[in-house]
Design a protein around this nucleic acid. Structure first.
Length: 552
RNA sequence: GCGCCUAUAGCUCAGCGGACAGAGCAUCGGUCUUCGGAACCGAGGGUCGUGGGUUCGAAUCCCUCUAGGCGCGCCA
């Protein structure tokens, strides 16, 4: 990547200046290249001289000149200048920029891919909602975050596995099974009372009815325990199926659907508990079994096995992560949790440490709450009462692309309002359409060229010298850096801003530069540029899991 | 009480150690005989929540305070 090459160039120059005695031999800080906001300052800039000034004890401007004097010339860079108070600014050569159009076309759909992942295995677990009810709007955010991040990490050269953890054990599932059984019996006019901690949503009644329709009284005459088990399994399978279908409509898919119950069946749960016991992290008190996290700097200890002998959610999550790291041996594990899991983070980090895993390998992204609104009115959601707006309803009404872009355009750290009215509006000021329109517009130009039978394969990109053309190329060249940023910071929201910027420079170019004109050579060159722009815009859209329409 | 997140233009949000703080929407004013006007160009609008500190340099790092959110269960 050019950014790294320039940083390397600078570091070498500084070292050379030191060897020749022009600069004192202080240790060099990491060289950071940035993009100046003011175009007059060039394409890349570094404040290395300012950072060195203190250690060296001399004027940053003269340090800058000494370094610049030692920079090896390179074809990408047209000029390097020193600017007060001590910046070194690089301006790329127009010829090199124009040449990049060919490189982009050559890379095609793989443009933007980088190698920093080096094939390391990353697992990203997200959504993982209890299958006790349909997904609601809030779950969509984690789903989009996760699937987009997975796309970006794949582009960055990681081997990514997306996983959904099915909480098919535990007390909430018990409540679900008992609720379903009650609704099922009621549906057949049998006496049954909903459990107090049950799920009262309409969807439970619908679910029971569907099961009656398809399997009749099959579970009615079984002993309660057996009925709960068998009916429960049917209900669970159906719920998971619906969740999977809802996610697929959002363009979200998983490589692995991991069952919590399997952790008991396959022994990971027993293994990890005895491992923790061995290492002295477990103690018994008040009739329960505890993970002694206070010894690891936590505020309090946490129960892993209740006094009735049943494991807590925390216990199974320990076993689950033991499996991720020590059984399946992922290099990095990323979990996307909702803000309501905040309290789970630090104790899980403590567990990771106790298992002897490098905490750097374990990343948690907390996605903040989504407040749903209809116009100005806040919609309260509660799964228990069944007062929810489902994710499916949202996707049906606003479409996958709008949905994805909407969820993606805010950083995970900040809470967001999702205004249903606004999202449903297919108005022109919707940024989704703005970006996609740029793509459709490009497609239309290429279509026109094809209809006219223009063959631009031999177009000479060095004819691209106008400022709007170069501005477009400059923006296109940012995609690999963006992929790197996202893979490093795990912040996919930058994609939405990039896509809008790219669309803007394209529209601006389009306004100023006629593509298909009487000038044949220039037409060919510009068609190449336009095709490259389509490649990059389409890649950006695909990374976000959106479509790149040929017409709209 | 403790922990985490948030506070930036009228609104919704980027920026998170560098050169005059950005975008979209909204407002106002321009562009339209040509490849898709779902477009382009321009203007106004901000003491970056408060008060300190670190630094050559702070919206960005540290501390105080204020406001909002989430968490602190033998729930998940």
């Amino acid at each position: 990547m050019l950014k790294h090459k320039l940083a390397e160039l600078l570091a070498q120059a500084a070292t050379r200046a030191q060897q020749s005695g022009k600069l004192p031999a202080v240790t060099l800080p990491e060289v950071i290249m940035e993009h100046p906001q003011n175009p007059e300052h060039g394409d890349y800039a570094s404040s290395l001289p300012l950072k060195l000034a203190r250690a060296i004890g001399s004027n940053p401007l003269s340090i800058a000149s000494d370094i610049v004097a030692s920079i090896a010339p390179t074809s990408e860079v047209e000029r390097v200048v020193v600017a007060p108070p001590g910046f070194i600014n690089f301006t790329l050569s127009a010829g090199w920029l124009a040449g990049q159009v060919s490189s982009i076309l050559e890379a095609g759909a793989s443009y933007g891919n980088i190698e920093i992942g080096q094939g390391r295995r990353v697992q990203i677990e997200f959504v993982s909602v209890n299958p006790t009810g349909p997904l609601h709007v809030g779950h969509g955010r984690g789903a989009i975050l996760g699937s987009t991040l997975a796309n970006a990490l794949t582009a960055a050269g990681y081997r990514v596995e997306k996983e959904y953890y099915i909480n098919d054990a535990g007390s909430q599932m018990d409540a679900f099974y008992r609720s379903l059984y009650a609704r099922y019996r009621q549906c057949r006019n049998k006496e049954a009372e909903m459990p107090e901690d049950g799920y009262f949503g309409q969807y439970m009644i619908d679910l029971a009815r569907e099961i009656v329709d398809q399997q009749g009284d099959e579970f009615l005459n079984l002993p309660e325990k057996e009925a709960l088990e068998k009916l429960g399994q049917v209900g669970l399978d159906r719920m998971v199926g619906e969740i999977r279908a809802d996610l697929e409509r959002l363009g979200v898919t998983f490589d692995v659907w991991f069952s919590e119950r399997s952790l008991y069946k396959n022994g990971q749960y027993d293994e990890v508990i005895s491992l923790l016991k061995q290492r002295g992290h477990i103690s018994e008190k008040e009739g329960a079994t505890w993970f002694v996290s206070t010894a690891l700097g936590e505020d309090k200890d946490n129960v892993v096995i209740r006094s009735d002998g049943s494991p807590t959610y925390f216990a199974t999550d320990i076993a689950y992560h033991y499996d991720k790291f020590l059984k399946r041996k992922f290099d990095t594990v990323i979990n996307i949790w909702g803000a309501d899991h905040m309290g789970h983070v630090s104790r899980m980090k403590a567990v990771i440490g106790a298992l002897g895993i490098d905490p750097e390998q374990f990343k948690v992204i907390i996605s903040q709450m989504v407040t749903l609104r209809r116009g100005g009115e806040i919609v309260r959601v509660s799964k228990r009462s069944g007062d929810i707006v489902t994710l499916r309803e949202l996707v049906d009404e606003v479409g996958t692309d709008v949905c994805r872009f909407f969820f993606l355009c805010r950083s995970a750290d900040s809470q967001m309002d999702f205004d249903l009215e606004l999202a449903k509006k297919q108005s022109a000021d919707n940024p989704v359409y703005y970006v996609q329109y740029a793509h459709a517009r490009i497609a239309s130009i290429l279509r026109l060229a094809q209809e006219k039978g223009i063959d631009y394969r031999d177009g000479d990109v060095s004819l691209l010298t106008a400022e709007p053309e170069l501005a477009l190329i400059r923006k296109m060249l940012l995609l690999p850096e963006l992929v790197e940023t996202i893979a490093t910071t795990l912040e996919p929201h930058h994609l939405t801003y990039y896509a809008q910027d790219l669309a803007t420079v394209f529209h601006s170019f389009y306004k100023q530069c006629r593509v298909v004109s009487a000038d044949e050579a220039l037409t060919w060159a510009r068609l190449k540029l336009v095709e490259a722009a389509k490649t990059v815009l389409s890649r950006a859209l695909h990374l976000m899991g959106m479509t790149a329409p040929e017409r709209m």
